[in-house]
């Protein structure tokens, strides 16, 4: 699945990367590594420095300090080599609306030095991959948001990059279309063997797609690991037991005697128990509780989410309010200026 690493290196290697705009620090010294074949995600709220990081890695911005090596090449000194090795899907649409899907890919291919039969076959292959082949002759301005994203992904992959950058790949798309895009991202890794670096502020997206995630806030990475590793930061699963109220007996005492380490009475008749793996411990716990004479009426459990992780680390929720509104305003603004 993974491509052979270049001189045993990483797909992306970033050390102490800083990017300042005047006095504003967008990226405040991030360090991370992405292995070949991996889907690596930057998860964080808007304005955390995700897009700036992608722009630096894609050679569109010069870092203020620090080092970034992409596909074995320094993004500042060997920008041309980096550009040859990467494909980028930007957060904002970057397609040519007045041209057809096919023409968009054709122009991209020619700019990347492809041509002739090779280009034609590859365009067809990629259009089929994102299921837009039958729309190849249609002007992009008539495409839906999901179709545009897919076409942009096809375009970014056309020249067979080693590393694909996706900046908020499902921003502003409806849930169904998002699930569809996720499928393509998983598939393209499998089929094209490409390393994927993506940014998102959607928990579910990071969890759904990424092998490893770096949580970024205020330009700094505050946690990094697999989704499971990150969730373990906030602890384990929580089982809620609703018990029949019987006087003053505290069910926790009985449960603790059975070997439960953390138990808390939420309110009378509701107990929260922390366990490693709720699915596995549940049957044992119920059996033990009944044996101890605790009558259980209802059971539920909750696994920690990445949102809990972010909350735990920053004390804030990842999605600010009014987010949807911002997307809406942006789409209106873009429409207004479109020719």
């Amino acid at each position: 699945m993974a491509r052979e690493p270049l001189n045993g290196g990483y797909a992306i290697l970033v050390e102490n990367l800083v990017k300042k705009y005047g006095k504003v620090t967008a990226v405040a010294g991030v360090t991370f590594r992405v292995m070949y074949g991996e889907i690596f995600g930057f998860l964080g709220p808007n304005g955390a420095g995700k897009t700036t990081t992608i722009h630096v890695l894609a050679t569109l911005l010069k870092p203020t300090s620090g080092r970034a090596v992409v596909a074995g090449h320094d993004v500042v000194r060997e920008a041309a080599e980096v550009r040859r090795s990467i494909g980028v899907v930007f957060q904002d649409p970057s397609l040519d609306n007045e041209l057809t899907a096919y023409e968009n890919l054709y122009i991209h291919g020619r700019i990347y030095g492809m041509g002739g039969e090779e280009l034609r076959t590859r365009i067809e292959e990629m259009l089929r991959f994102v299921e837009l082949y039958e729309f190849r002759g249609r002007l992009v301005k008539h495409f839906s948001g999901g179709m545009r994203r897919r076409l942009e992904m096809a375009r970014a992959l056309l020249h067979r990059p080693k590393i694909l950058f996706l900046d908020e790949p499902t921003l502003g798309l409806d849930p169904q279309t998002r699930a569809h895009i996720w499928e393509y991202i998983r598939k393209l890794r499998a089929v094209e063997g490409v390393t994927v670096f993506l940014t998102t502020h959607y928990m579910d997206e990071a969890e759904e797609l990424c092998d490893r995630i770096a949580i970024i806030d205020h330009g700094k990475i505050i946690a990094e690991g697999t989704p499971d590793e990150l969730k373990r930061l906030v602890g384990t699963d929580v089982i809620y037991l609703k018990t029949r109220v019987n006087g003053s007996r505290n069910p926790c005492n009985a449960l603790k005697a059975l070997g439960v380490s953390e138990c808390r009475v939420v309110r009378e008749g509701l107990v929260a128990v922390k366990v490693e793996d709720a699915g596995r411990s549940l049957p044992k716990l119920i059996r033990a509780a009944e044996e101890a004479g605790i009558a259980i009426e209802e059971v539920s459990y909750r696994k920690p989410t990445l949102n809990d992780v972010f909350l735990h680390l920053t004390g804030r929720e990842i999605r600010e309010e009014g987010e949807g509104m911002k997307d809406f305003i942006r789409s209106v603004v873009i429409r207004r200026f479109r020719r």
Binding site: T59, V88, F90, S94, Y112
Partner: peptide, 16 residues
């Protein structure tokens, strides 16, 4: 307009 609508980025990130 290319700047506004993103096509410029697509060109700037190309190795050409």
């Amino acid at each position: 307009w290319d700047k506004q609508f993103g096509f410029l980025k697509e060109v700037l990130v190309a190795p050409a």
